[in-house]
Amino acid sequence: MRALVVDDSRAMRALLTNILRGIGAEVVQATDGRDALEQLRRTDALPDLVLIDWHMPEMNGLELVKAVRKDPAWKPMTLMMVTTESEHENMVRALLAGADEYLIKPFTPDALLEKLNLLGVPVPEQALAAVTGG
């Protein structure tokens, strides 16, 4: 699996990247929406999954979701918001704009893997068992 992590915090990018690499994903990072869009336009290996913070300089996460969903070639990508923004109306806006799932910060690593499982993103049985096994 290939993933793109979009967050303006270096520490948060590192945290998300480490969890995803732990399940064998290939991870690239972007620092805000505009950086993410530029990387998506340049790449010939589109990510399967994009994790998107909401509040970022330049282009925010909601605008990024809208921009990605405008291009039919990017339809297969799974978009998940990872943000503190948990107000009802804003979550609705993000889902209506085309985000597939939503993870509220703060989150535990197992919560991220469970959301991926929910989205049908392959998570190795062992990794999931390690976090959900009790």
């Binding site: 979550m91 985000a99 799932e101 989150f107 919560a111 499982n117």
Partner: peptide
């Protein structure tokens, strides 16, 4: 808590069945 809500609850269900 939001930590518990994060654990496997689809966002659409959160919006439909929960209030803040």
């Amino acid at each position: 808590s939001s930590l518990e809500i994060n654990r496997g609850l689809p966002a659409a269900h959160l919006l439909q069945y929960f209030s803040r």
